[in-house]
Every structure is written in C-alpha cells, then in structure tokens.
Design a protein around this nucleic acid. Structure first.
Length: 420
RNA sequence: GCGGGAGUAGCUCAGCUGGUUAGAGCGCCAGGUUGUGGCCCUGGAGGCCGUGGGUUCAAGUCCCAUUUCUCGCCCCA
C-alpha cells in the first residue's frame, strides 16, 4: 500500500458518516433552540494568535501545534483550538457593536501533534459554543445546560460534570503565591515537570498524577477558599443555577484547565466509557481574552466537545443513530432494448422526489433482484422485452410480492401513490 | 516525548514447537429456471502474511530495524 492517511488522522467512510451527521445535526438543533449561530473560521491562523491566547507554556503551544511558514514567510498554524479563532473573528468584525450579547457555535477540525491513542488524534473534530458579552452567572449555567442537553438528546448517559473556579487576575495570582509558599519546602521532591510548573503554571501541580506530587499537594488549601468576593459569589451563583436546572455536578477544586485564558468558571463533562481520555466536553469562562486580542472589555464563556469521543461513548453505550436512506425503487431492465426506457424512468422517479436506483453492471435478473433486496427497495420496476412491446412496466411490491402491470406513462404516478 | 501489546483475504480471525500449492466464517461474484429477492446447496474470485534487512537447506512462524494501529503516561476534546 503506497499511501495511507497520515498518522493520527482518519477517513470517515460512508458507513460511519451517518453517525457524524446525526451528532452534528443534533448539535445544530440544540444550538438553534438556545439561540447560537454558526461562525466558521479559516483552517489556519497566524501562529501568534494561538501562542498569545492559549499561553506559551501550555503543552498545546510548546509542543503540539502544526506550524508552518507560508510562501510569504509568515508563520501559520493549523487550528489548534476552537476558541481563539472565534474571538479573533468577533473582534475583527466588531460583532460586539451589533448587539450586547453574541452567541456562536462551530463544528470544525482541530489539529494537534500528539501521540495518537483511543479518543486522541492529530486531527480531531469539535463542536463548540461561545457566548460573548455577559458576565451573568446564568450565562455560565446556560452554556453548561446546552452541553448537558446535548448529551441527553444523544441518549448518552453516565457523564459526570466537574466544575471549579480558577479565579480572576485579582485573586488567582494570590492563590498561586500561596500555593508556591506551601509547596516550597518539598520543591526538590516534586517530579521534574512540577518543578517547572512551580514557576510557569503552579495550578497544574494540583492535577499532577505522579504519586509523589499527589502526596505533597493533598493538604494544600483549596482555591475555592482563596477566591475574591466577586469570583466566590460568581461560583456560588453558577452552582445555584445548576441546582435550579436540576443539573448535578461535582465541585472539584483540583480541576484545572490547560489553557491560560480561563477565568472563574472551569468545567468538564467526563465519561467512564472513554478510558484515559475521559473528558468529552471541556470549557469555561474567559473574561480577559477579548481585551487581550484588542477588543473592548467583553466577558465570555464557552465549551468545546470532541466528536470522536462522543462517538466512542455512544458506541460503548450501544447507541445507534437512526440511519439508512435506501432507495425506495429499484429499476430492473432486461436486455439492450429496454435500457433506454429504464434510464428514463429512473430519472423521472428521481425528478418526482422518489429515491431510485438501478444496476449498472449488466447483471442477470436474479442478480438485479438480489441487489434490489440488498438495497431494501420497497418496489422493483421490471422492464423486459414483453413489457416494452406492450407499453407496460411490471411493478413488484417487495414486501407483499404483488406484481402489477402498469402503463409506462402512469408508472411514476402509481409508484408515488403506493409509497405515500 | 516515554513504556506495554498487535499487524495474515473487503471484515472477524485460525495457522502448534520454522518444513509441500497459507485456511475458516461472513461478505462479494456466478450457477442451482426459461424473466423474479431473503433461506438452502454448489462453484469461483480475492493474500508482496504491514515494510525492509538478517539467521537458516528452508521463515507467516526466529532476530533486528522501521511503520501503522492499540493500551497506558503526559496532555487535552
């Protein structure tokens, strides 16, 4: 085999694509219900857009981006993440000027140079939403509720919602200092990456899985107790709304997100059916990002959801989307002379909005019947020499095995009738 | 980037300790009616045994490398 899809990428074959369409369709439906409109952005952006928003010291930026130089010697990067391009478009087109609150959704490929494994690819696909212009905790709750309803609509069960607050530029630095203070005596005993994190991103020490590190951070004061008044109130309000909406959650003070732009609310929906990659939906609030990109102060909140992971969960839970649009009618022709009439009838059926198929490989009657059966045709139209001479076609109901001779000019009409 | 497992027909897999022309089930194609599907029967097509080296009289089988998939770490959707 000379060529195959690049490592970590995949072809979505016709037998799989109905599942994708189903998931994406449900997502579009829900977005419409919640008032989110689609915003499509380019597949690649200036590299700087991602490094500055996601954060230089994050894994995504430091080792996972697909970056290349274009012929104008500009550094470009394939979409490494869903939010930054949306924010860029929001600021570039001054959408904040159109209305106070803007709500968008996207369905798109995301590219990260990672070691592939179950639920993790170099090109994966996300559906996601972003809501701009409101700092109301009810907006956080709406975003989470949309995710929750998306899962429910797909019939996906058993997902846990974990939620936390990562604070704001007021209180987060203070907590980071307190964290450093607490860890400092054990610094030499932490794992290598945590020693780097100590300086660059101390919050990440909280969710380190290395057994040694866990030990030292287990007694560390919770960020929830270090939030400023505003952030604390915000978190409480979000949780209260979730209670009101009947959305159960686990408050997890150790939940940390790997992108720098998050403020206040951070959340994930996790599933036990995913193995090591347990997060299917991840998101949070990013009140400072629009300003950072040169827009007016605009609070915002959103999430991203991995389509491949959603499909994995659905498969594990035995959820089969309703699929299969089989031709309703299969046209069988017997012999050269009947072919022209058959092709014409096939076209007429299709023009009348009736799904129709025929055989293009010159098979026998029996084989054509088998093909019709395999395609689950409801009716078969048989055109042989005899019929042709009499100006008739034979219409066979595949369910009842009834056969009727019908004048050619009435065939489409009769079939349409029978199908309705 | 690090560690474990795997790669044989379109699909799911079998090939024991190295030994003739590499097998099964499903699927596909054809026949069993002269112009009629599902079930059944018969036959057929289809494999550089992931790729490249090595050991050997002899390699699908043993060794090395490589690549892809897979599981875990890391991180994330």
């Amino acid at each position: 085999m000379r060529y195959s899809a690049p490592r970590g990428t995949q072809d979505i074959l016709p037998r799989e694509s109905p599942r994708w369409q189903y998931v994406e369709g449900k997502f579009r439906d829900i977005c419409r219900l919640f008032g989110y409109n689609e915003l499509r952005t380019p597949t690649f952006e200036e590299t700087d857009l991602f490094t500055r928003s996601v954060g230089e010291h994050t894994d995504i930026v430091s080792k996972e981006m697909y970056t290349f130089q274009d012929r104008g010697e500009r550094s470009m990067t394939l979409r490494a993440e869903g939010t930054a391009p949306i924010v860029r478009a929001y600021v570039q087109h001054k959408l904040h000027g159109e209305q106070p609150v803007n709500k968008f959704y996207y369905i798109t490929g995301v590219f990260r140079y990672e070691r592939p494994q179950a639920g993790r690819y170099r090109e994966h696909h996300q559906v996601g939403i972003e809501a701009f212009g409101s700092q109301d905790p009810a907006m956080d709750a709406e975003v989470i509720a949309l995710g929750s309803q998306f899962l429910a609509t797909l019939g996906v069960g058993g997902c846990e919602l974990k939620i936390n607050s990562v604070g704001c530029p007021e209180c987060a630095p203070q907590y980071k200092d307190a964290l450093r203070q607490d860890v400092k005596p054990y610094l030499n005993e932490l794992c290598e990456t945590c020693q780097v994190r100590y300086d660059t991103n101390p919050l990440r020490m909280l969710d380190c899985k290395a057994p040694g590190c866990k030990e030292f951070t287990v007694n560390i004061p919770s960020i929830v107790d270090h939030l400023c008044q505003d952030c604390g109130d915000h978190l409480k309000a979000v949780l209260r709304y979730l209670d009101d909406l009947g959305i159960s959650y686990i408050l997890d003070p150790r939940l940390v997100r790997g992108l720098d732009y998050y403020t206040k609310t951070a959340f994930e929906f996790q599933s036990a059916d995913l193995g090591a990659q347990s997060t299917v939906i991840g998101g949070g609030r990013y009140d400072g990002l629009v300003t950072q990109m040169g827009g007016p102060p605009t609070p915002a909140v959103g999430f991203g959801c991995g389509i491949e992971r959603m499909l994995l969960i659905m498969e594990a839970q035995g959820i089969e989307p309703p699929i299969n649009v089989h031709p309703s009618v299969f046209v069988i022709t017997l012999g050269e002379a009947t072919r022209e009439l058959g092709i014409k009838l096939l076209a007429d059926l299709r023009k009348a909005g009736i799904a129709a198929e025929t055989d293009y490989s010159g098979k026998s009657m029996k084989s054509q019947m088998k093909a019709a059966d395999r395609e689950q045709a409801k009716f078969v139209v048989i055109i042989g020499e005899d019929e042709l001479n009499q100006g008739l076609v034979k219409v066979r109901n595949m369910g009842t095995k009834e056969e009727n001779d019908v004048p050619i000019c009435e065939a489409v009409e009769k079939i349409a009738e029978a199908l309705s």
